[in-house]
């Protein structure tokens, strides 16, 4: 169990209030109809699953019901920060868009 800061509510809340939303910022193919099955399958199903820092989405299910971005270490559950989707995108790009 850990505590997450919800950037919309401006408060730290218990993990139980949140729902996990999966990996953040998965680029959608610009021309999905041009992809072969393997590339489309990669987009749909393949995720990074790192041991270490991971950009992921959470939704504040019982509170504001909005999605936001969290950078969490999957090995230690250390949390580097939480951002709204727009702010998180900037931080993610500033890091070079990697885990």
């Amino acid at each position: 169990m850990f505590v997450l800061f919800c950037p919309h509510c401006g408060e730290k809340r218990e993990e139980e209030e949140f729902g996990y939303g999966g990996e953040a910022f998965i680029p959608r193919p610009a021309t999905p109809e041009a992809l072969d099955d393997e590339a489309w399958g990669d987009y749909l199903f393949m995720r990074k699953n790192p041991k270490g820092w991971h950009w992921e989405m959470w939704s504040h299910n019982t509170g504001c019901r909005k999605f936001f971005v969290v950078k969490r270490n999957t090995a230690t559950n250390a949390i580097a920060g939480s951002w709204t989707l727009a702010e998180g995108r900037k931080a993610y790009d500033a890091e070079g868009g990697s885990t």
Binding site: C9, E14, R65
Partner: peptide
């Protein structure tokens, strides 16, 4: 006082 929270 004055706070409203959505919680479990």
């Amino acid at each position: 006082p004055g706070r409203v929270v959505g919680t479990t």
